[in-house]
Each structure stands twice: as structure tokens, then as C-alpha cells.
Amino acid sequence: MDAFTRLILEAEQAHFSGWDFSFLKDRLVSETPPWDYRRIITGAMTDANSLLDMGTGGGEFLATLLPLPPHTCATEAYPPNIPLARRRLEPLGVRVVEFQDDDRLPLSGEMFDLIINRHESYCPSEVWRVLKPGGRFITQQVGGRDNIELNEQLGADVDPEYIDWNRQQATEELGAAGFHLSFQEEALSRTVFQDIGAVVYYLKAVPWQIPGFTVDFYRNRLRDLHARMEAGYPLVTHSHRFLIQCVKEPAG
């Protein structure tokens, strides 16, 4: 079995659950953005009695933020993640809520002092509805140009509706919903894929990067990319991230 076939096979057979990329340790290396999301969140939690984590995945990140506010909930829309999140978070006193529609969260109005959202879609008016007056919404989003070099290398189309998702668009939408913007920043951070197995595993774990991706369809492009990587030229892409903090100011 040649190296290309072995790396592809390993990547296709590797298990992925929650939001765990440990399989890619040292094989996918990405610079961190200039802000510290964890530090920002833990700082905001100090005066929060209620917290909502939107798109918790398997609860991996939320479970590291102990101690949590007395009333903490998490939402998750991807069915395979629900049991993972409940097993991890319910022993910590966290209620995990399954939902399917950003426009209709199954939560009562004005429930939370703080809503956090890391790489999850959201509806600004729904965030506004469930946030208490004076409460804060903090989100780190994946921008529309995230790792776009992957698509270019494999000759894959980029979603024209998503490509323009950036800090400006998000802040305009949140402002229109009534939020007061208190902080915003955007960054393109260098990311390096060390081998073709890392590329395939990533595309399997993040299916929206190249919708409908299969090794068979892209085999020739993948083999060409593998040859360049084996020759000492890893694939360099850029992670597109932006961070926004905003406040639902009390009426009057």
C-alpha cells in the first residue's frame, strides 16, 4: 500500500464525534486569532447568573468553563451530538436543548444574562428575545473565506451565499436587531495541513467546506496535492474568524 492510499484510508476510517479534532494533532496546525475567546468568556461569566451556550457540540468547551453560572443551558442541532452533550453536561447541572430552527429556539424570553456562541449559526432577533435586558451576546464566527484555499486546490466551488459572511455583515444584522456593539475584530490566521490524510479527515469532519466531497470524485486532485506535500510543500490556508461582543440595552 503506497503512502497516499494509506493516509486516505486512515482518514476515512478514523472516527469523528462532537468537535474533537485530536486525530489531527500536529498534522493540522493553525495560528490562533489575536483575541483569547476563553479569557473573554470567563471574564464575562463572573457577573452572570444564567448562561446559554449556543451550538455546544458534544459540550467539550462548555465543560471546561467550571464553575458555571447557577442556571446554564446549551443548545445543539446536530442529532449525533445530543447524547454526547447530555452525558458530558447534565452531571454538571446543564440542561441540553435540541432544536432544528435558528428562527425558533425552544426557550422562553429573557432567560439569560449571557449568551455565548462559538462557530454556530444564529438568528439575531431570537438571540435578542431570549437575552435579558442588559445581557451580553458574545460570538466567534467562522467567516466565509475560511480555508478557501482548500476549495481552490481541489477545484471545488465556494458557496456564493456564504462567501460574504464576515464581521461587517454580522454587525449590521445585530445592529438592526437592536444590539449595541461593544467590541468587534476579524482575522485571517495561517493554517498548515501537513499531509493528505489531514486534508481528507478535515473535509469529512467539516462537510460544508466542500459539500458532497468524496475521495473518488477528487482523487486526481488529491493525488497531485499529496505529491506536492510529500515533496516538502505542505498546504497553507487561512482560517477566517471574527469576534463580536454586543449588549441588549435595557428599554428606556
Rank of each mutant, 00 (worst) to 15 (best):
M1I: 10
D2T: 08
A3Y: 04
F4G: 05
L7M: 08
E10F: 06
E10K: 14
A11Q: 09
A11D: 03
A11M: 13
Q13H: 08
G18W: 08
G18S: 06
G18Y: 02
W19N: 08
F21D: 01
S22Y: 07
L24H: 04
R27P: 07
R27Y: 06
L28A: 07
L28C: 14
L28V: 09
S30C: 15
E31W: 02
P33G: 02
D36M: 04
R38Y: 09
R38W: 03
R39N: 09
G43M: 03
G43K: 08
M45Q: 11
M45G: 10
N49W: 14
L52G: 04
D53T: 07
D53R: 00
M54A: 12
G58T: 00
G58S: 05
E60G: 04
F61Q: 00
L62T: 06
L65M: 11
L66S: 13
L66R: 09
P70N: 06
C73R: 00
Y78D: 05
I82A: 06
A85T: 13
R87A: 08
R88T: 02
R88H: 00
L89Y: 04
E90C: 14
E90M: 07
P91C: 09
R95D: 13
V96S: 12
V96E: 15
V97H: 06
E98P: 13
D103H: 15
R104L: 09
R104N: 15
P106R: 09
P106F: 01
L107K: 01
G109Y: 00
E110A: 01
M111E: 00
M111T: 02
I116L: 08
N117M: 00
S121G: 15
E126I: 02
W128I: 01
K132W: 00
K132N: 01
F137Q: 11
Q140Y: 01
Q140I: 07
Q141M: 02
D146I: 01
N147Q: 05
E149Y: 03
E149N: 06
L150A: 05
N151V: 00
N151H: 07
D157K: 11
V158M: 12
D159T: 06
P160Y: 15
Q168M: 07
T171Q: 11
E172P: 03
E173M: 13
G175C: 06
F179W: 03
H180A: 14
S182E: 13
E186T: 05
L188P: 04
Q194L: 15
A198L: 12
Y202L: 09
L203A: 07
L203D: 05
K204F: 09
A205F: 07
V206A: 00
W208I: 08
Q209R: 09
I210S: 10
G212Y: 10
F213M: 09
F213K: 07
F213E: 02
F213R: 10
R219A: 02
R223Q: 10
R223H: 13
D224I: 10
L225M: 15
L225T: 11
A227L: 15
R228N: 14
M229W: 04
A231V: 13
G232T: 05
Y233N: 14
L235Q: 05
T237F: 02
H238P: 07
R241V: 01
V247N: 03
V247F: 10
E249Q: 14
A251R: 04
